[in-house]
Simulated assay, not measured.
Amino acid sequence: MAKTVRFQETGGPDVLRLEELEPGEPGPGEVLIRVDAIGVNRADMLFRSAQYIYPVKQFPAGLGNESAGVIEALGPDVTGFTVGQLVSVIPNFSQNDYPQYSERALAPVTSLVPRHESVDAVSGAAVWMPYLTAYGAMVEITGVRAADTVVINAASSSVGLAAIHTANRLGATPIAITRTSAKRQRLIDEGAAEVIVSDEDDVAGRILALTGGRGAEYVFDAVAGPGIVDLARAVAPSGTLLVWGGASGQPTPFPGFELGMPALNLRTFTVGEVIRTPERLRRATAFVSKGLETGAFRPVVDRVFDLADIVEAHQHLESNTHFGKIVVTTSR
């Protein structure tokens, strides 16, 4: 039996319950993982509260699709991995199918990334979702190049920080946007060339000033909502505004007519575009692995909670006060 988080209805953090469940035996294409650490993502909160891009299929429901641990058992046709091997589980599957908030969990073999013994479980659970997202958007989809200016809002999130690191690795100039000045210095320390405080600054005006009036070649928007119009004002001609989140929870207008129909590329993106395409995933894991090896990339962990404190972990996630990744560990 394994302690497992489930919920019987969608709602706030208090719908989450810890239960004792049998994870079952791995079938074809599956492995059984002894889970040591779990990456907590905004997608988990949205799924739990019925706000995600796909719904909960049935109740009781599980949660989570990113973890790190040790392989306990292999399905009958699984090759390339061994029992006892350290792995990270990347989120290339639905939380409906392989929930990871548990001491032991099934996972598809296609989601496994070998984890070197020098990488602890917390780091192994914290690194992949942010960097795969940043790589996919910046390299595979938009093609950020050296000397480009890249604007990133919600910059203190794990994805925002990974985007800052990735922009620097590509030779681009990352401009971070954050709501309050409390996180300004930490963002500078993480590699932001400039920090714009949205509660205090004229965001579009500051971007235009920092780029000599040209605007940014790429703007990565994790907030969406009405603020997208202001961001669009600061995109360089023929530049790209990519929406990869909807943290505002508000309707998002098309920023065109009121701006005089500028030469603007507007695109949405989810990490699924990369992690569900084998060739893209191969390139992505190689890119991220090399960045980790050289030290250009590293997980930024805000707080670590015990699985028994999952409600508190989700309350912390919803507070939007965290800087980097929230991770949950299992106790044994």
Score class of each variant (00 low, 15 high):
158 S>E: 04
286 A>W: 13
317 L>N: 11
261 M>G: 14
164 I>H: 00
44 D>T: 08
60 P>R: 13
309 D>F: 00
70 V>E: 10
109 V>D: 06
63 L>H: 01
141 I>W: 14
308 A>I: 07
170 L>W: 00
224 A>M: 09
17 R>K: 13
146 A>T: 15
121 A>Q: 01
35 V>P: 06
141 I>R: 14
331 S>T: 13
235 V>M: 05
189 D>G: 10
57 K>M: 07
71 I>P: 00
221 D>S: 00
269 F>Y: 12
285 T>S: 11
146 A>V: 14
109 V>C: 09
297 F>T: 03
261 M>I: 13
64 G>M: 05
285 T>F: 00
229 V>N: 14
208 L>N: 05
215 G>N: 06
33 I>H: 08
147 A>L: 10
108 P>K: 08
96 N>K: 07
26 P>Y: 09
123 S>I: 06
295 G>L: 02
19 E>T: 12
222 A>Q: 14
30 E>P: 09
305 F>C: 02
320 N>D: 15
323 F>S: 07
187 L>E: 02
268 T>Y: 10
126 A>E: 05
147 A>D: 15
329 T>D: 02
306 D>A: 13
230 D>S: 12
305 F>T: 01
162 A>N: 00
101 Y>D: 12
232 A>H: 04
304 V>H: 02
222 A>P: 08
175 I>W: 07
155 A>D: 11
100 Q>T: 10
292 L>Y: 11
159 V>W: 01
152 I>S: 02
180 T>W: 08
143 G>Q: 11
266 L>E: 07
82 T>K: 11
154 A>R: 05
202 D>R: 02
231 L>S: 08
192 A>E: 06
117 E>D: 14
324 G>F: 01
215 G>C: 00
12 G>M: 06
290 K>Y: 09
82 T>R: 11
144 V>F: 00
48 R>G: 10
206 R>Y: 06
6 R>Q: 13
103 E>D: 12
251 P>A: 11
30 E>Y: 03
52 Y>G: 03
168 N>Q: 09
226 P>W: 15
209 A>E: 15
170 L>A: 01
253 P>D: 13
236 A>T: 01
65 N>Y: 11
291 G>K: 01
230 D>G: 09
228 I>W: 04
311 V>F: 08
214 R>P: 06
240 T>Y: 00
108 P>S: 03
56 V>A: 03
41 N>E: 05
233 R>Y: 08
108 P>W: 06
200 E>H: 13
302 D>M: 08
61 A>W: 09
233 R>T: 11
134 A>H: 02
